[in-house]
Structure formats: structure tokens, C-alpha cells
């Protein structure tokens, strides 16, 4: 396995919606309750502490 320049026409698997390197839109609710109920935050595209009276 190595870093190769995959051509655009070879990215059919990479471009699958489930391969996206971010949380699903629906997971924003999960991330929100986790930021309220857990001490940790950040590195997941969700709240990092501002915008709410959360942890």
C-alpha cells in the first residue's frame, strides 16, 4: 500500500457517498449530544465547546 495519484476516472470507489471522510449529516445530532454529555470535543467536525453551554 502506498500513496499513489489515483486518476479522476479511477475514483469510482473513493467517490461513493459512504466513503466520505466526514460524519454523515444525520450524525450531527449524535455529535451534539456527545458534546453535551462527554468531556471531550473536537477533531470530528462537531462542536468544540463554543455555541452552547456544553462541556
Amino acid at each position: 500500500m502506498s500513496c499513489v495519484a489515483v486518476k479522476e476516472y479511477e475514483k469510482i470507489n473513493i467517490n461513493d457517498p459512504d466513503m466520505r471522510l466526514s460524519e454523515r449529516d444525520l450524525d450531527k445530532y449524535k455529535s451534539t449530544f456527545q458534546s453535551y454529555r462527554e468531556a471531550a470535543a473536537g477533531a470530528n467536525g462537531g462542536k468544540t465547546g463554543g455555541g452552547c453551554g456544553c462541556n
Binding site: 502506498s2 500513496c3 499513489v4 489515483v6 475514483k11 473513493i14 473536537g42 477533531a43 467536525g45
Partner: peptide, 15 residues
């Protein structure tokens, strides 16, 4: 993108 079937991301936040 590591290959035609694998991709990875490293994320860091400082608050």
C-alpha cells in the same frame, strides 16, 4: 487517498 479503495484523514483541533 491511499489507493483506489482506501482514503484517510488526520484531524487536529486546539481550543
Amino acid at each position: 487517498i491511499l489507493s483506489k479503495s482506501i482514503q484517510t484523514a488526520f484531524i487536529g483541533d486546539v481550543v
